[in-house]
């Protein structure tokens, strides 16, 4: 089965932890080169979805297909950028970027050689020899982004990667991410609770219902033209209209999550 051209295909996926049903029924299709943002209230199982796509979590029911093939074991095609800081504090920026290459058997010198252009791509030329503690929060995020993307995963997974940053730094990160993605389009699933961020970045925004036993509420196509100007975009009428449309769905779910979680 599995529609061709789909990088990720989740069908009626249910995720349980013991007796607790985190996700009741999730359908998510991501085409090759498509940028999908998943939004939902806190605790709706957004991260759970990503863990399912990487193969860290096995669904209790339903089907997970990666490029048409049923996923068994770990997903070898995905790269995962975590929400929290995961850089090795004892390695320099370039060694952190090249870490995955070293893990795959590349020599340190070769990994560095490949890491340097990636640092330049995320705007960190000249920061090769810095240790993580010598970088700002935004710079560390950029290193982490390069660390994930240097492996050239066919499917990129990002779990609220910029949520800890201030607004201006976040906008800068959006610009860098969009530039990189525009230059070399891959499937990207971006988890966020920030609707502005979701509409700015994605081709499609998927809204999840409040947890537990969550599922998909809506799937809205974002027709904003690309390449997008991150800073000018948010004041356009199309953007505001999309925001209103999605918020009318998301807002209700957020309300519900307040009721269930207190």
């Amino acid at each position: 089965m599995g529609r061709p051209g789909l990088a990720v295909d989740l069908r009626d996926v249910m995720i349980r932890f013991g007796d607790f049903t985190a996700v009741k029924s999730m359908n998510l299709q991501v085409a090759e080169t498509e940028f999908v943002a998943v939004v939902g209230p806190t605790g709706c199982g957004k991260s759970t979805i990503l863990n399912t796509v990487t193969g860290l979590l096995k669904p209790a029911a339903g089907d997970v297909r990666i490029f048409g093939k049923s996923l068994t074991g770990l997903n070898g095609q995905s790269g995962y950028m975590l929400q929290q800081e995961g850089l090795l504090p004892w390695k320099t920026a370039q060694d952190n970027v090249g870490l995955g290459l070293v893990f795959q058997g590349s020599s340190i010198a070769k990994a560095r050689e490949q890491a340097r252009p990636w640092l330049a791509k995320v705007g960190l030329r000249g920061f090769e020899e810095r240790y993580p503690h010598q970088l700002s929060g935004g710079q560390r995020k950029r290193v982490a982004m390069a660390q994930t993307l240097i492996m050239e995963p066919k499917i990129v997974l990002m779990d609220e990667p910029f949520s800890a940053l201030d607004v201006h730094t976040r906008r800068l990160m959006h610009r860098i991410l969009l530039d990189l993605w525009q230059a070399d389009r891959r499937s990207l699933i971006f988890i966020t609770h920030d609707l502005d961020e979701a509409i700015t970045l994605a081709d499609r925004v998927v809204v999840m219902s409040a947890g537990p036993a969550s599922g998909m509420v809506a799937d809205v196509r974002i027709g904003l033209p690309r390449p997008r100007d991150v800073s000018a975009l948010q004041t356009t009428d199309e953007f505001v209209a999309l925001y209103r449309e999605i918020w009318s769905l998301l807002g209700a779910e957020v309300e519900k999550s307040y009721v269930t979680q207190g």
Partner: peptide
């Protein structure tokens, strides 16, 4: 850090 290394 450990989880990140494992994901790589």
């Amino acid at each position: 850090v450990l989880a990140n290394a494992r994901l790589l």
